[in-house]
Amino acid sequence: MTAVPDAIDQALGIAPGSPLHALRALRPEFVSGAEACRAAVLHPEETLDLSPELRRALARRVVAWAGHDRLTDGYPRPADPALAALADGEMPEDPALAALARHADLIAATPAKAGPEHLSALQEAGFSVPQIIALSELLAFACYQIRVVHGLGLLKETRA
């Protein structure tokens, strides 16, 4: 168990000593595994020319769908105005960022509707195949976080 609260502890607003923290400690591999995934999608060794700032902005846009403020706050709002528009759920003026915004919303809210034409749109906007894969993992990771935080939040009044 790590002493430093991880992103999910922070999103849940829990600290060591709370029943929910103790529950999470029963599955240390879920805790460490999610942290390793977070690092891999936000600042991987192979960046594929996708900046950490862009990645965080996109993650913020996706997690905001769930309305869990502390989870959203885990991805600080970018200073750059174009990235801030992406992070805030607006439609960025830059065509590549706009394509990314549309894809993020599709994947976050209605993944069942995704089809090959949506990948073509990203390719036409200038994203490479490896970049599309990395962005897909990032978007889907944020969707994973939403469910873990929402679900565990329901166990806050956990029984002994």
Binding site: L23, R24, L26, R27, F30, I107, P111, A112, A114, G115, P116, H118, L119, I133, S136, E137, L139, A140, F141, C143, Y144, Q145, I146, R147, V148, G151, L152, L155, T158, R159
Partner: peptide, 26 residues
């Protein structure tokens, strides 16, 4: 609750995996 925690994670990890498998292929 420990089992519910496991269930939450199995649902959540498919919130991830489904968003790869379905959008990226047929």
């Amino acid at each position: 609750d420990a089992e519910i925690q496991d269930l939450i994670h199995s649902i959540a990890i498919f919130g991830w995996a489904n968003r790869l498998m379905h959008p990226l292929g047929h």
